[in-house]
Design a protein around this nucleic acid. Sequence first.
DNA 1: AAGTCTAGCTTGCACGTGCAAGCGACCGGA
DNA 2: TCCGGTCGCTTGCACGTGCAAGCTAGACTT
Lengths: 334, 334
Amino acid sequence: MIGQVGKRVTAADVARSLGISRATVGFVLNNTPGQTISERTRQRVLAEAERLGYRPHRAAQDLRRGSSKVILMVIPDWRMEYRLRWHLEEAALAVDEAGYSLAIYARQIAGRARPLWELLAPDVVLGLWPFDDEEVASMRACGVTRIHPDPEHPGSLDDASIITAGPALQVDHLHGLGHRRLAFAASADPRTSPLQEARVRAAERAAAQLGLDPLDVRTVDYLGDSATDAVRRWHAADVTGVVAYNDEVAATVVGAAIRAGLAVPGDLAVIGHDDTPLAAMFLPSISSVDFDAVSVGRHFAALALHTIDGRPLPSEDFEGNARVVARESTVGGR
Amino acid sequence: MIGQVGKRVTAADVARSLGISRATVGFVLNNTPGQTISERTRQRVLAEAERLGYRPHRAAQDLRRGSSKVILMVIPDWRMEYRLRWHLEEAALAVDEAGYSLAIYARQIAGRARPLWELLAPDVVLGLWPFDDEEVASMRACGVTRIHPDPEHPGSLDDASIITAGPALQVDHLHGLGHRRLAFAASADPRTSPLQEARVRAAERAAAQLGLDPLDVRTVDYLGDSATDAVRRWHAADVTGVVAYNDEVAATVVGAAIRAGLAVPGDLAVIGHDDTPLAAMFLPSISSVDFDAVSVGRHFAALALHTIDGRPLPSEDFEGNARVVARESTVGGR
DNA sequence: AAGTCTAGCTTGCACGTGCAAGCGACCGGA
DNA sequence: TCCGGTCGCTTGCACGTGCAAGCTAGACTT
């Protein structure tokens, strides 16, 4: 066995060591309002707690409080959720300020292990899109009362600017470069479907607004021939610009195009989404859409806090300061 | 089950609803040994608990038990820890069987949010390599008594076959293709350094065993000119084979080589590590090293359980059934 | 001198659980 | 008839915390 089973220091130990009562210790350490504690006692308590290395027992706090002060954020198990990581770091900080903790959990689609909410018993579970009935039931059973998006009133991803801004920028970028027949390359990864569908619709709306033909949507997988097929069909149909669901899909399309003998961007221009390292690294490098991590993170935190205590819901107009990063896959120049 | 929102169902509710005592309910639900409960009562309790949707309150259990039954596994915040995810899913299952839960936490190197162990109060914290003093102090302060690797006796990554098997395979693969002057492409990402250093040493040992010259180790970043520089130097020094720390680094090297006018694998053969989708997707596709998720996962679980209750430590000879996946970046054929 | 007020504490309870100890009813043996 | 033993359950406590309510000594008022 590794490690020493050290005895835990409790508030009672601190009190006993000072010869005072446990409640006094509690009042000092919690700054309980409405209590009058002499400055001398206060300092002695603080010093002794520090000296003994006292840390409140989380389970006891949770039990007493009836709340775990944990916000669980569930994210999809994307292969490359590069940007999201940074967004979430910012969200964790913002939530910290409100006295909560943000735990982040990437669920596996075929996950056979227990979901993290059964382990954490969080106050809030936050998802990027609605949970299915089974998940909701499992959360409810574990005492989770606050869930976002609200299972009763799911709302639509199509109304969130933070979802729709990226695809709109992608379409605008290609249109601005003179492309008039566009396609959408979708991921075969089932984990992304709700978000992906919202992005497809957003791209289609943007195309319609510019007077373009409806997008030719095709699913592409990095294994197998689906990408090669898609590229051939697109080329045959005079498509010259492809909006990809994300950078990984964009890379797959670019790879298939080049293997099929097409020039990128000469015959086919491709733009990804999320600005992952892959986009910068690929050959040719891939244009993408970047978001501002800080503002997106604060947006998530605002969502969580709204769900907890009804603080104002963040604006649906928030678009995360999205911007296009133009690279070789659309503007050439290698 | 009654899906009530709000009020939590306790064991006392189940007991009250049946007109029996709380202890009886507890004995039934925990299968407490040494208790005699009539079959009729047992069934009534189980049925009523199910009907009311009873779930034990984790905080209360933890408080009573004095242990959270959580194993926290800390992994580095790699950008593409693709394979690791699957390994960990297997580990979670194996640990489940022992009555524990496995939480996985990807720490951010610049992470300003609280580490997950402060939130979870786990029984064990498990890392892939030794924690630094500050982290150990923080864990100890939160009541974590068991840490692996043991801060007192850290041990060396160099002795673990699961670390060294991959680099050895990479070197062997290139050697088998006739390459005699090899280099190592290291990642500029500081998060990977301990593992990276172990991999470098393992590759160097493998090279030495084959009678090759010492490896020319260079750090490569997908941003900036470091990759281009490295490729030029290597080519000038007649290096023909590059062992990359992982697939991402391999892609960066391949990209730089091709942009510099070198043929891959004609002028420079490159092999990655981890067999991520990126390796299959890249242009040209990248050879890599794959591991068996199930056995690696069980290895992690065995480590955790050893740390908890002294079960036999898994063998250091375990190499995770590593194998080379040969692709265009070493064997050509496009 | 007697009463009032308040600063500065202490006592005590509840949170939900697991389990030790206790307790009455019944049953079998003497 | 009595008595020990087992079955099947209940009472009660401890875990560590946050906080409501109470309590005491001294200061201050009348």
